[in-house]
Structures are given as structure tokens and as C-alpha cells.
């Protein structure tokens, strides 16, 4: 039995029992950037003429949407790399990123609905941006369901990777939906030339995106640690099972 254990390296978990300097710095950066983003959202950014105060939801709505795109892009990357290299680490990255992406998409939809209720008078509009975002949300919920419903880990990883690549086609559809169809959704005010966003708002938005990116990285790290620890637990259970069978 001993040699069976020896060839499986005793894996060290990131930010394990030792609370590393790296994770301390990460949490400090998270708190700092979040605090700054909140300050700028409510104090620094000027009030908007037409929409009054509720426009400030923009500073969480837009970063959530962008981070969802990023997260789903990372899902596709992890999936491609898993199929190409077969390292479980890539699959863990894809899974973790998908879950976070779904959470950010949910937040995008909810903040958008609240903003819409105030500006349009209704919670939901049958608008290309909104509809495609909802479809994207369903697509990645389906991805998480597929992971939940396939029992064999190696089959699950392969099937999820294939879907993780196929599902990413929904991301450009959401992104370009405002260009392709007439939309009620505000146009992207950063990428469009001469987009009329005052400098303070733009700075606040960019800083919020930065803060959300830090948040994404922290969540990703935690989520991947969770996956790693869970797979380590099942590995140890397997070793114990073996020992029991050897003793018999």
C-alpha cells in the first residue's frame, strides 16, 4: 500500500492552513477597491440629469455584465485547455468560473430589472439585450445542470468541456445584440465614439470594473480551492477504502 501512496504526491492546498501573504494581500486589495468603488459611486460621480439617482446602479450593473462575459470566456478557455491537455486543473477553472459567471449574470439581470422599473416603468422589456442575456443565463445554468447530472467524474469533465466551448457562442450574441437589432437598452457609452459620459462617471465605472475583477479573482480562487479540496477528500477516501480491502 505504501508505494501506492508514494506515487501520489501529497498535494498542498492553496491558502490552506497557512494563511498566506498572497491571500492576505488579495483580501486587502478587495476591501480597498470595493470601498473606493462605493465611495466613488455615491459621492464622486455626479448626479445624472434625466435619470436622477437610480442611474448609479450602472456602476454595479455594467461591471457585473462584463465580469459575466469574462467568466464565461474563462469557462471556454478552461474547457479547451482541458480537452487539449487533460489536466483537471483546467476543468476546475471552467467549473468555478461558470458558477461565478451565472451569479454575475443573475446580478446583471436583477439590477437591470430594478433600473428598468424606474426608468421604463416595467421590470422587463422584450429587448434584444435583455432577452439574449436571459438566454445566456439559461445556457450556463444548463452547463451547471449537466455537471450535476453526470455521475462519472471523467465523463462529466469531458461533456462539460464540450458544452463549455459550445455555450460561449451566446456571449458575442449578447454583446452585439444592441448593434444587430434595434434596442431600448442604452448603447455602450464607452466603446461608441463620442459617447456622452462625463469623465467622472467614466472613471467611476472603470474603477468599479476593476473592483469587480478583483472580486471575481477572489471568488475564483476560493471556488477552485473548494474543488481541489473536494477532489482531495475523495482521493483520500479511495485510499482508505483500498487499505480496508487490503486488510481483509
Amino acid at each position: 500500500m505504501r508505494e501506492a501512496l508514494a506515487h501520489i504526491p501529497h498535494r498542498e492546498l492553496p491558502s490552506g492552513r497557512r494563511f498566506g501573504l498572497g491571500s492576505a494581500a488579495m483580501y486587502a486589495l478587495l476591501l480597498l477597491s470595493m470601498g473606493l468603488a462605493i465611495f466613488m459611486t455615491f459621492v464622486y460621480a455626479p448626479a445624472e440629469r434625466v435619470q436622477a439617482e437610480v442611474y448609479r446602479l450602472l456602476f454595479v450593473h455594467v461591471p457585473s455584465a462584463w465580469l459575466a462575459f469574462l467568466a464565461f470566456g474563462v469557462v471556454a478557455l478552461g474547457s479547451v485547455m482541458y480537452l487539449a491537455r487533460g489536466r483537471q486543473r483546467w476543468d476546475r477553472l471552467a467549473h468555478a468560473s461558470a458558477e461565478i459567471g451565472v451569479m454575475f449574470t443573475t446580478l446583471t439581470l436583477v439590477t437591470g430589472a430594478i433600473w428598468g422599473r424606474n426608468v421604463w416603468g416595467v421590470w422587463w422589456q422584450w429587448d434584444p439585450r435583455l432577452t439574449t442575456t436571459l438566454i445566456m443565463w439559461f445556457m450556463y445554468t444548463g452547463y451547471l445542470s449537466l455537471r450535476a447530472y453526470v455521475d462519472d467524474p471523467s465523463i462529466r469533465r469531458r461533456a462539460a468541456s464540450v458544452l463549455g466551448i459550445a455555450a460561449v457562442v451566446t456571449v458575442p450574441i449578447v454583446w452585439f445584440s444592441v448593434e444587430w437589432w434595434r434596442s431600448l437598452h442604452p448603447r455602450p457609452s464607452i466603446t461608441s465614439p463620442g459617447g456622452g459620459m462625463p469623465g467622472e462617471m467614466l472613471v467611476t465605472l472603470l474603477l468599479s470594473v476593476g473592483a469587480f475583477t478583483v472580486f471575481y479573482l477572489v471568488l475564483l480562487r476560493q471556488r477552485m480551492t473548494l474543488e481541489l479540496a473536494a477532489s482531495e477528500v475523495s482521493r483520500l477516501r479511495e485510499i482508505m477504502q483500498d487499505q480496508r480491502e487490503d486488510d481483509r
Binding site: 445554468t141 444548463g142 445542470s145 449537466l146 447530472y149 455521475d151 462519472d152 465523463i155 461533456a159 464540450v162
Partner: peptide, 15 residues
């Protein structure tokens, strides 16, 4: 993709 999944009849429409 769903061929090895539990409840694949339900899962397929979701995907």
C-alpha cells in the same frame, strides 16, 4: 452530451 447523464430526458431541453 447528455447520454451518460441522469435524467437526460429532462436535461436535453435545458441544453
Amino acid at each position: 452530451l447528455v447520454v451518460n447523464a441522469r435524467a437526460r430526458e429532462v436535461l436535453l431541453p435545458l441544453l
